[in-house]
């Protein structure tokens, strides 16, 4: 009797807050997605799933979807591999390790508006830092953010730079959970570093890795601010991503219903990606 009520007690604060402040607005936007409405004009028209049907023919949206997936493929695996490597390095007991940790974390604390401006200088085709070094090395300068071929890659690099510290911190926290004794006893038994990593660290870290994979995929699929500041979706639509598209539809063209439909298609993509990740990784996630 007492047992049945315990989960309710433990879940009540979170669930009630989520229902009011998160689920309610989400349902509201679903309601919006079935209408042709800008949220301010007196007449709203119920259109059913027409907004969704229109999306299939919307070239701007298809392009945004493609770019979002490419951005996710560029950033998520790179970030996870880099962060895991860094976290293992930063988990050592070394002099000055906390300074290194602070440096790797520093990009995370910067305000995105200011740091995007800094990156725009770094990427500047004639005066920027990267091309400055390229010229010294005799490499042809690249129009990083200006060229449709490199713009999305450039935004991805900046995003990896900014998000890396977060992932490192989560991995670090995950590494703390692994009992030192297990690694030590394996070492005594003559296991190589790679074996220790493969059979102990990687396995015991799998709940953390799963978490990071899911969360960073969601974040990548929802990338917006740095695009808004640095490229506004350009050049020639090369960095147009879904949330930017949604923002443009909703807030500049006042197509709130349509924008909400975009959000729900994104939702479907993210959920199926998450389920796929869960299915594929179920084998090595040890709880």
């Amino acid at each position: 009797m007492k047992r049945a009520i315990t989960p309710i007690l433990f879940l009540f604060p979170a669930v009630s807050l989520v229902m009011i402040f998160i689920v309610y607005p989400i349902f509201y936007s679903f309601y919006l997605s079935l209408h042709s409405w800008d949220m301010i004009s007196p007449n709203r028209i119920f259109v059913g799933f027409k907004n969704y049907a229109k999306l299939i023919r919307d070239r701007m949206f298809i392009n945004a979807l493609k770019n979002t997936l490419i951005f996710t493929i560029y950033t998520v695996p790179t970030q996870i591999i880099l962060a895991l490597g860094l976290a293992i390095l930063l988990n050592q007991k070394l002099k000055g390790i906390s300074i290194y940790r602070a440096i790797f974390f520093s990009p995370v604390v910067t305000s995105i508006v200011a740091i995007s401006a800094v990156w725009m200088w770094i990427y500047h085709p004639s005066l920027g830092l990267i091309n400055y070094f390229f010229r010294i090395l005799g490499i042809n300068p690249v129009n990083w953010l200006g060229d449709p071929k490199t713009a999305l890659l450039s935004v991805s690099i900046m995003s990896i730079w900014r998000g890396l510290g977060r992932t490192v911190v989560i991995f670090l926290a995950g590494l703390q959970e692994i009992p030192k004794e297990m690694q030590e006893s394996a070492q005594i038994e003559g296991a190589s570093n790679w074996q220790i990593f493969k059979y102990i660290t990687w396995k015991l870290l799998s709940p953390t890795t799963f978490f990071i994979l899911v969360v960073s995929t969601i974040n990548a699929m929802q990338v917006f601010t740095q695009i808004h500041v640095m490229t506004q979706g350009g050049p020639a639509g090369a960095t147009e991503v879904i949330v930017y598209n949604l923002y443009y539809r909703g807030f500049q063209l006042f197509q709130m219903g349509y924008a909400s439909a975009i959000a729900y298609v994104l939702f479907a993509f993210i959920i199926s990606l998450t389920l796929m990740q869960k299915y594929m990784l179920n084998r090595w996630v040890f709880y």
């Binding site: 989520v18 998160i22 689920v23 607005p25 989400i26 509201y28 936007s29 969360v215 969601i218 699929m221 929802q222 917006f224 949330v243 949604l246 923002y247 909703g250 924008a259 909400s260 975009i262 959000a263 729900y264 994104l266 939702f267 993210i270 959920i271 998450t274």
Partner: peptide
Amino acid sequence: TMAIPGEIT
């Protein structure tokens, strides 16, 4: 619920 972007809500 994390899969719905904040811009739309």
